[in-house]
Design a protein around this nucleic acid. Structure first.
Lengths: 113, 113
DNA sequence: GTATTATGTATAAGATTCTTATGTATATTT
DNA sequence: AAATATACATAAGAATCTTATACATAATAC
């Protein structure tokens, strides 16, 4: 996704947070939501997304539910109980990560008078 | 480094920022500096650090300079001209990344009255 | 006095995550 | 009729990191 390696490792957290927020979503919907929220800056590729969803399902983080809409198949994903708990941890880790990165690149905050 | 995949992809940016700030540093010094700044939360492993330094050197981002201190060898790294330019870009990418991640996980900022 | 920890660099095997390319299929727009 | 949007899937390879191992000197602990 995108021309920056920084996003590597953040996809699972993004998926889980969106599902926590929206109840249930299908793959394509996730890609569009992410694109919209980031003003087109972050584009999740299918090659990254679908294997990630399958893995989260295999780990018991997500439940899946098929639905046929407009003659097309949709796989809706939602957080399991375990997944909901795990999401809290992931978001906490993300906060720590962002805080640490800001400490590293912003050693002396500019004081304004 | 650490028990979170989120840091994956951020090592180069961290190295470059520290070198921009401190002029020149050697590998072990970088690991200690990062540990100190993050209060022990982020530990750069040698297996990640040294290959990263070698690659940045091969890409012309870093210059190396050997120095013998206390009968031990040290390899001091510093940014090249190209590396200095590249650092500006990386830090800009990091800002975008952090902003995007905050948008994704913080959709409705809590208003306080 | 010797064993551990700290300092210092290095590589190699394997895991994880992602990119890029490809495949299939239907609906809509040009 | 062709291209784009919607929808899911996988496979090969790249990039990054973990874990383990290796070597070497200095300082500290027992």
């Amino acid at each position: 996704m995108k021309n920056s390696q920084l996003y590597k490792g953040s996809l699972n957290t993004i998926i889980m947070k969106l599902l926590e927020e929206n109840g249930k979503m299908y793959g394509y919907e996730i890609t569009q939501k992410v694109k919209a929220i980031t003003s087109g800056e972050l584009n999740i590729t299918e090659g990254a997304l679908y294997p990630a969803l399958h893995k989260l399902e295999a780990e018991g983080i997500l439940d899946v539910e098929m639905e046929k809409v407009d003659n097309r198949m949709r796989k809706y994903y939602k957080l399991t109980e375990k997944g909901t708990t795990e999401t809290v941890n992931r978001l906490s880790e993300l906060e720590d990560f962002i805080r640490n990165m800001q400490s590293l690149v912003n050693p002396s905050p500019k004081l304004e008078f």
